[in-house]
Design a protein around this nucleic acid. Structure first.
Lengths: 168, 168
DNA sequence: AGAACACAATTGAACTCTCAAGTATTCCGG
DNA sequence: CCGGAATACTTGAGAGTTCAATTGTGTTCT
């Protein structure tokens, strides 16, 4: 790190614009979800992940992997979601260290009601303004980033064409 | 919002990959900065913005605008930065409601020491793996998002080629 | 001048996230 | 089958962010 290669003009513009855009985008999504459903975006994502799992249930560790969340963060989140009755945690017989988180009917209902507004917002702030080409570019770029940041490729799977879950 | 246009397969993949990448990217930057400089990324950005302003000073409102931060957030941040002696707040004579935040020598020193490691990290997680073409695409995409999210176009200026500030 | 309004910034409470530790359970080599 | 290592998860403290409310100051209109 002796000699630093600073960002050139173009990189700098890209970086700052990107940072600003992402910052506003996250704020926008979070505000919409909180306002309309009382859920932070991160918690919404947890419900989505559960809804897509067979039986609406996942191990805490599996769920953390899908969300790329630390165990601790997920634990706190699950505590809150459970308190609100949106999920339910229990242990499987024969395995006393693993905890299963399961979407409750109420959680599914809340998710179903939240989804349309959320998707609408995602379209508004992102897809509505991008060309099809740009969407593809963004995917390619995101995949590169992800490859760098998550080399293990933790849970790169998505619901199939007829995935049972709630979309987002 | 009667009928929801869900994300199609391609959009969904893009969206989720993007979310994951951004989430990890932010975590990575924040961790690096905190570890090496004791500064969260958001606070680092505040110091950068000040360093680029003439005299290393800006109104709280101007600074908030550049960072696209709420007044409240900035106020809390400034309180912490001031306590650490990295900035100094004062009022101009003749205007008793505006507060000026000014980078202290110590703040500038901390920023100078933090910058190389941060830029290195930004390269590592982003620019090193992207082609020049992708960098340009990402800029264009980010500009579109920003246009949607910040129509006013709050402070779209960047330091010129020889900007006096610290790069990031 | 005075009232209403807009603007600049701060405050405090609630909430979420992170990090470091801690508890409990299961796995595995010798 | 025993003891150390790895795994699964939780907990608590500390920090940052958000929202709503508040304070104080400038502006404007009549």
């Amino acid at each position: 790190m002796a000699d630093t290669r600073w960002l050139d003009e173009g990189e700098q513009r890209t970086w700052r614009t990107f940072l600003a855009a992402v910052h506003l985008l996250e704020g926008s999504l979070d505000r919409q979800l909180r306002r309309d459903s009382g859920l932070p975006h991160a918690y919404y994502q947890a419900l989505v992940a559960l809804s897509e799992a067979p039986g609406g249930a996942l191990t805490m560790t599996e769920l953390a992997g899908r969300l790329r969340s630390s165990p601790s963060r997920l634990s706190h989140a699950a505590a809150r979601l459970e308190e609100d009755g949106l999920i339910h945690r229990f242990k499987r017989l024969g395995d006393r260290r693993t905890t299963i988180a399961e979407l409750t009917p109420r959680g599914l209902k809340v998710l179903r009601e939240a989804a349309p507004g959320h998707v609408h917002e995602v379209r508004r702030v992102l897809f509505d303004s991008l060309t099809q080409e740009q969407v593809d570019q963004l995917r390619a770029i995101s995949e590169v980033m992800l490859g760098e940041l998550d080399p293990e490729g933790r849970e790169p799977r998505y619901a199939g064409p007829n995935g049972a879950g709630i979309r987002d």
